[in-house]
Amino acid sequence: MPRLRLDVALTLLVLAALALAPLLGFGANHYLTLFARIMILAAAAVSLSFLVGGAGLASLGHAAAMGVGAYAVAILDAHRLTDITIVLPVAIVAAALFSLLTGAIAIRTEGVNFIMITLAFGQMAFFTASSLAPYGGDDGYTLYDRTEIFGLRLMENRLFFHYLCLGFLLFCWGFCAMLLASRFGRVLRAARENPLRVQAVGFAPYPFRLLAYVIAGTLAGLAGVLFANATEFVAPAYMGWQRSGELIFMVILGGLGRLSGAILGAVLFVLLETWLPNLTTHWKMIFGPLLILAVLFMRGGLIGFLGARRG
């Protein structure tokens, strides 16, 4: 399958470029900020791609799980708890628990109701965050410190942080790919295509789907931890449905059904979102139609588009 090699090769190329960028003269702070945003959102998009493209669960509330991770950082920060030995376990447990509770209900529904109920849970998280007056409420919360690693302030080193994000993105990609290829992933993929068939060979899809939902949510929560550190700021908007929509867009833009697509989609999305405002303040009037055109004419996303070009 030459198509598979092409999209993986392209993604590896992008990742290599990100790895080398600081060494090739793109080490200035504004570049590194941009790269961090790309890599963290790409990691979240990969986890969403695993969920949507792999398990067939089209969640419109994925940003909420990411926000839970970010808020774990913020809330602990307010209590001056910034070491990774505390932040990481708390963030993981919080994101996993949030996903478990919401997923347990959401996965009972199907199709469009699933999209809507995940959106509703996302909005609940959004409003909960807005209500957290001690942690900034509507206005958001500015961190005192980035997360420390065993007492060391490594995250403040921009290069370290750059490679940490890159490492996390690679981990997400590899981990989700591994899951999809495993026995567990096979059941998920089969249930996406034909749930009845899966039941008729003796599997109840529910626990598989719920676990996939929890795993994806936890990965998103970890991405949220990095995101909070990258921006040193956390706000309810991190959880809003618009952000979830953006994540979905990255996944579809790149090509649903391929994890690498989510990475390519995130890169393109963040670049567009960064570059377009230079042209006009009303850049969303360009961005919106671009989105529509991408959906209408790039079926299968970038990867499908590239594949069609070659074929």
Partner: peptide, 17 residues
């Protein structure tokens, strides 16, 4: 996939099926 249902747990995550 059907054979998998009869052979051990399907909550296996590491090995490619």
């Amino acid at each position: 996939l059907a054979a998998q249902a009869q052979s051990g747990s399907s909550f296996g995550f590491l090995r490619p099926a």
